[in-house]
Amino acid sequence: MLDDLSLQIGEGEFTAIMGPSGSGKSTLLNLVAGLDRPTSGTVTVGGTALASLSEAELARFRRASIGFVFQFFHLLNNLSVFDNVLIAAQLSGAQEAASRVRAQQLLNELGIGAKARDYPVKLSGGERQRVAIARALINRPAVVLADEPTGALDSNTGEQVMELLVALNQRGQTILLASHDLQLAGRYTRRIISLRDGKLTRDSRTDGQGQEVTQ
């Protein structure tokens, strides 16, 4: 639940939404992704006001503009790694050949190119999350939403995933990360928005080393 929350996230920002469990982090991400609708107020992404969109239009908006990375990966277990990535491109109606090339390219970049023909059950947690990231990126979304992407991973693997997200951000990708791990968020993101009981309690910028630079 969110209450009286107003914020703007700029293009190319890597923003962390922080807060304890139940603070409204995931709700905020769901609203941005168009998976949920606000009872009042507006959500605008890239100039598109989501409140006015139908379910089908929201789905099309998600395909085109949003890449979602979940805590528990949410891969389709009966599709291969390659097809898990490819299916998002197919849903968006992208051209086949180019999508295949990009899917393989993303998997290679994320270090799991060799696993393309494997099925998710054979992968480690970190590998699954990389597949999820590749899937989130295949359509070149305006925003990547990452909901506790390291929550189901051990600390080393979590670090690797965060480094991947940073690398993406450095190439201009807007990323909105929900996390309850302040240390991790402070180290990798440039802006931290803190929520408690659905209200904005703090909006700060960091230097990328965990140090706050503005308030």
Binding site: A56, R60, F61, F70, N78, L91
Partner: peptide
């Protein structure tokens, strides 16, 4: 149901 939800999250419309 989980797969369907994932596909919807990826942008599959109710019609699809």
């Amino acid at each position: 149901v989980r797969d369907i939800a994932i596909l919807k999250a990826l942008g599959m419309t109710p019609g699809q």
